[in-house]
Amino acid sequence: MLRNSLILGLVAVFALALFTIFSEYKTPETLNRTAQYYNENEVSQVGAANVVTAVVVTYRGLDTLGEVTVLFLTASVIGFILRRKKKGEPVVKADKGSEILSTASRILFPGSIILGVYVFVNGHLTPGGGFQGGAVIGTAILLIALANPEFAVSRKVLHWLESLSGVTYVIIGLLGIFLAAGFLDNRILPLGDFGHLLSAGAIPIIYSMIGIKVGAELSGIITDINQTKTNLS
């Protein structure tokens, strides 16, 4: 009982501390200066219709690079922890998915992949981008893996896709130092006509690279976990 009352007290203190945010919050009339700057100058500086994409890919591009690295580390650690002990050990013998699931997954798989690619290629025009597109691709892989437990994307293909897209991302970032104002500057390519697919400089390329990388990493995590055999059963 002491434990429960301690926990409740701690939660109450935490909630009270956060409650001041609610009680003292006054809705501001205008944007703060950073947001004002981004909203006013983004179109002339970056040229993307979606301001969030401009912030993610260009203004805070280094942040995103670090984030993709964290995701890569997570995928590597999961692969390391779950590695199979012996090479010849058979993979998990789970039940096959039902007839409905396997038929539906075969029909839905190409559509999901195309949706994912659409989402990350159009990241600078519409809501969406590399992370969402990568997640949709990961879901497509998951669907196939659920229907057919023996299905596995080749690790080699995943690693190559991931490394290639990561290296391209960094190279594009480095090109920005020499051809434009700084690291990850998107103006190494012409800004183009505002609102078209091929516009906003290097943003479509960078976001596609992020999409492929995130998709490969999520697929890797899913395949790793789905194929683990709990060594007790």
């Binding site: 979606n50 989402v119 809501p127 969406g128 981008g129 992370f131 969402q132 997640a135 949709v136 879901t139």
Partner: peptide, 9 residues
């Protein structure tokens, strides 16, 4: 943007 990410992930 955030809504899409949250729904997908």
């Amino acid at each position: 943007d955030v809504a899409m990410t949250e729904a997908a992930i």
